[in-house]
Design a protein around this nucleic acid. Sequence first.
DNA 1: CCTACAAGTTAACCTTGGCTAAAATATTAG
DNA 2: CTAATATTTTAGCCAAGGTTAACTTGTAGG
Lengths: 160, 160
Amino acid sequence: MTDSSNDVTPDRLCKADALPPSDQHAQQYVAVRNAHETELLEDYVELIAHLLKHQGEARSTDIAARMGVSQATVSKTVTRLKALGLVSSKPYRSLFLTEKGEAMAAMSHQRHAIVLQFLRALGVSDRTARIDAEGMEHHVSQETLDIMQRYTREQERRSS
Amino acid sequence: MTDSSNDVTPDRLCKADALPPSDQHAQQYVAVRNAHETELLEDYVELIAHLLKHQGEARSTDIAARMGVSQATVSKTVTRLKALGLVSSKPYRSLFLTEKGEAMAAMSHQRHAIVLQFLRALGVSDRTARIDAEGMEHHVSQETLDIMQRYTREQERRSS
DNA sequence: CCTACAAGTTAACCTTGGCTAAAATATTAG
DNA sequence: CTAATATTTTAGCCAAGGTTAACTTGTAGG
């Protein structure tokens, strides 16, 4: 029995609780896995962009400190970012973003900002909002982002 | 210069945009990495609990289909779940949750439901809400969950 | 100028979470 | 009961993202 639709399921137990069909359900997990793949890259370029803008320079040391990892890890990840054409740098020198990297950083930063502002508008404390936004940002679709942005604006309008 | 607080930063460019201090910033990423570690485990136990409840049985085949991975992958992950004391099973037979596994499944399911309902209450379409909830659920703190739940109830009250 | 220290890189290792292919075990049909 | 089919497990592979330790390169001070 490969198909689970013709089963002797205790249907009395479920209701609105039912899962979507297998293939559709699988796509959800696939989407999450895909998000995971780019997550770290996005965090890096976002952070690099920020450092470039606010410190004038993006150094491995600072990235390591901010990401909470060792410099060796940064070095390895940067190698990957370079291979992907997101970052450029000369050996032992500080980092720069390619156009592609900048584009990704801008997108990522915008999404991050939308989620963060939304959480604050909802009433979440600053500390928590920051942590949650960091984790959530990569999993929020455009549709939801639009709705969040609308909500935030609505809240701001009211409190002014 | 290890400390980045005494820098010649172009401060005119920032504002509300400033990053938190390095150590605090690092904690955010650490939190996300920690969440990632348990994410998959939670998804598995949640799914197993669901299958047990709705199909009466949790089989590797179904899990593989629902998660969108190969059976070999399921087998390997289940080994890990068993080592962690979340799942029990005899070789070549279907799976069960330990008490610990059931507790985790219940928590995870509740969180999932809160996030999903919240997104729907916000006005996100069902399809998108499902996908986003799947990705977001592991990154939403208790504080935010409480606020989401309150919001959802508020919405439901209004539309009745 | 050269020496010490800071910063970046490399090497060797680990775990997780995927995969395919092949082997072992159940189940079902004839 | 046995043969075909379905399911589960195992083995061997890979990439990502961590680690520490050792090495290289850059930068300041004396």
